[in-house]
Each structure stands twice: as C-alpha cells, then as structure tokens.
Computed example of a mutant assay.
Amino acid sequence: MTMTHDEVTGLILAGGQGRRMGGRDKGLEPFGAARLVEHARRCLEGRVAEVLINANRHLEEYRALGDRVICDREGGYQGPLMGIWSGLEASTTPWVLVVPCDSPALPDDLVERLMAGIGGADIAVAHDGEREHPVVALIRRELAPDLAVALQEGERKIDRWYARHACRRVDFSDCPAAFANLNTDDDKARLAQQWPAGNA
C-alpha cells in the first residue's frame, strides 16, 4: 500500500513549558529570519493534508501560523505524549506526522522519507545513525485509543509507548545535524552561529 500526502496530518508540538528557556514559549522564539515554529512548519507545508499546532498558551499567535491549533486534552503540561494523543484525536487523516517546535533544521524531505520508510509498521521514527528522535515520527491515528489507555495508566515516556507497537526506525544518518534541538539559550546561540544568514 502506498501512502499519499492527503492521508497525513502534520503535528507541531509546541505545548511545553520551556523551563530550560526561563519559561518562555519556545515555539515563538525568534531564530534566524523566523520563529522556531515557522521553521518546523517549513518541512510540513505543502506535503501534508493539514498542519496542526499543539499549543497551550499564546493561542492567537499560533492560530495565525497553523491550519488548526489544538490544546492538550488534559491540563497540567503532561509532556509530549499528551500532545501526540491530542493530535491523533484531532486529526481527520489516517496518519499523523509529529515534529517538535524546537528543531529548526529538519530536512525538507522529512515527510517523504518517513512515509517511504514505514513499510507495514504502525510507527516510523527518525534515527540519525546514533540515536532515535522519538518526537520526529509518523504514527497511525488508530493508535489513539491505546495511547489514551497508556496515559491513563501514567505512561509519559514516548519510547516505552512506541515499544508496545510495530515501530520502524527510518535512517537519517546522512543528516544527523538536522535533528539538533534548542532546549536552552546556549543551544540556540550555538546553532545560530552555524545558521545560514537570511535563512527563513
């Protein structure tokens, strides 16, 4: 079976507290010529049926950037699994492709490569040759009820939930730097030094 772009919803995770950035909303942080969430959107736009942004504050600002903005279905900033579940529940397509808001260098062909690499699995997760990047993944929407149960049981570790399902690693060892994420101001400054001038 060949998956089409119309069967995939893009989901940008921007619902965290940004604790290691002093509580600032990371998705709205400026980086280069755009905000971080806009860089995340770049690799999705035109390649998926719809772009959802999972956010829990500054909703009006995010609404200007995404097709739809969705909040966590349960409050308390419970982490990325809650954001993923909220996105799976909100999606109208069979597949959801998840990316974080704080990885501005994700490859332009991310969607195509995850679609091509999933095979018959339920989840395809990016692997840079050394480690997995669990918040860069293509997930079957039908897994939403199982994730709801896992969250109800207290599960908050993405890799442990993935292990419950047919999960395939997709090789991105040709571009490991693409998965650099900006957790702190130091991370942001370090990547900014390598960022092409004028990149948007």
Rank of each mutant, 00 (worst) to 15 (best):
M1W: 14
T2Y: 10
M3S: 10
M3H: 07
D6G: 11
D6H: 11
E7K: 02
T9A: 14
Q17V: 12
Q17M: 12
D25I: 02
G27I: 08
G27P: 09
G27K: 04
R35V: 09
E38N: 10
L44N: 01
R47P: 02
R47E: 00
V48L: 11
A49V: 14
A49I: 02
N54M: 07
L59E: 07
G66L: 08
C71M: 13
D72K: 04
G76F: 06
Y77L: 05
Y77H: 07
Q78K: 13
M82A: 15
W85C: 02
E89D: 12
T92L: 10
V96W: 07
C101T: 04
D102H: 00
P104C: 01
L106H: 09
P107V: 01
L110I: 03
L110T: 01
E112W: 05
R113Q: 09
M115T: 02
G120M: 10
D122T: 14
D122Q: 15
V125K: 09
A126H: 06
H127A: 04
D128Y: 00
R131G: 11
E132S: 14
E132I: 07
R140V: 05
L143R: 08
L143P: 02
A144Q: 13
Q152D: 15
E153P: 08
G154R: 03
D159F: 12
R160L: 15
Y162G: 14
H165Y: 12
H165A: 10
A166Y: 06
S173F: 02
S173Q: 04
A177Y: 04
F179W: 01
F179N: 00
A180K: 01
N181Y: 04
L182S: 02
N183G: 04
K188M: 03
A189Y: 03
Q193D: 14
Q194E: 12
P196L: 09
A197C: 15
A197H: 15
G198T: 09
A200G: 07
